[in-house]
């Protein structure tokens, strides 16, 4: 009885008692969710266009943020550092395509996935050796003041982050649906060989998509880094975007966003209202368990296509 109370009644009473606090929890969840979405977006881009499940997206976020901070620490002005980092990410896309993807062409998805786990380790190691592994502060001049709307505390930085994410998603959606390159990307995602057969330059497409993912990683890195400092744990937080993908479906850009928001809000609410009942720190696994339960009932995700098996 007591347990039922703690699990099913008390949390809702708490919510009803303090609606302003609940709103703040939800908003902070939404903003964390936006961050997850940004990382997940990078995954979706690469998966959509090359069928590669890029485990190293998190490491790319860390690598981009480290590069940016490293350049700024050496006295490079912000705008130049941004351009420089973007250039580094594009160069990285070239190298990855040349050294890793091209020799692995036509290999099974699982092999490519494992290769990206290798890439994940490689990038973490290189990034931290090149730029140092201590926690760094990233300040790119985004305003960070708090203000109140209807008794709810808001932060300019968070709103800014949400705005950036929205713009990014809009641009990418147009890019994928309306441009010739977008169409080629979708063709490659469906079938490498068929795409080659109709004359789509596979390697160029891969460089483009990994570059775009690299720049998305940079944006995510700036946001995360400015919020909580640039450090190794960035790439761990990025692991959280995996359950986001499960919820949203691997190939859906809106899915990545909505999945991110669900996970972000869900884990904040779970932590604050149900966490104490479990002894706290359930944020660490809540997202994965949610994804696991979700998988059992809707394996293709919220927006993924139903899988028909044929023989």
């Amino acid at each position: 009885m007591d347990l039922m109370n703690i699990l099913f009644i008390a949390p809702f009473l708490d919510m009803a008692d303090a609606p302003v606090f609940l709103a703040e929890v939800v908003i902070s969840g939404v903003l964390t969710g936006v961050m997850y979405s940004l990382v997940a977006l990078g995954f979706v881009l690469i998966f959509k266009a090359s069928g590669v499940f890029n485990f190293a997206q998190g490491a790319m976020v860390l690598f981009a943020a480290l590069t940016l901070v490293g350049l700024m620490e050496r006295g490079v002005p912000v705008w130049l550092a941004l351009i420089g980092t973007a250039a580094v990410m594009v160069a990285l896309a070239f190298v990855i395509e040349r050294v890793m993807l091209r020799p692995l062409i036509n290999q099974e998805g699982i092999i490519l996935f494992m290769a990206t786990i290798g890439l994940d380790f490689l990038l973490q190691g290189v990034g931290q050796i090149a730029w140092g592994s201590n926690v760094k502060v990233l300040n790119v001049g985004i305003p960070n003041k708090s203000f109140e709307v209807g008794g709810i505390l808001l932060n300019e930085f968070d709103l800014f982050a949400a705005l950036i994410a929205a713009v990014l998603v809009g641009v990418l959606a147009v890019f994928f649906q309306k441009t010739a390159i977008g169409r080629a990307l979708r063709a490659v995602a469906d079938d490498h060989q068929a795409a080659l057969a109709v004359g789509i330059p596979l390697t160029t497409i891969w460089v483009i998509v990994w570059s775009v993912a690299g720049i998305v990683a940079l944006v995510a890195g700036i946001m995360w880094g400015a919020k909580s400092g640039v450090q190794f744990s960035l790439s761990l937080i990025a692991l959280k975007s995996l359950p986001v993908l499960i919820l949203g479906g691997f190939t859906s850009i809106p899915g990545a966003i909505i999945g991110g928001l669900i996970i972000g809000v869900g884990e904040k609410i779970a932590e604050i209202y149900w966490g104490p009942a479990f002894g706290g720190a359930i944020e660490g696994w809540f997202a994965y368990m949610l994804a696991l339960v979700f998988l059992l009932f809707r394996p293709q995700g919220l927006f993924g296509e139903r899988i028909i098996e044929r023989v």
Partner: peptide, 13 residues
């Protein structure tokens, strides 16, 4: 980390 990562990619290729 670099050696592990590099070896993985190398071996898979």
């Amino acid at each position: 980390e670099i050696i592990f990562g590099g070896m993985i990619i190398f071996f898979l290729i």
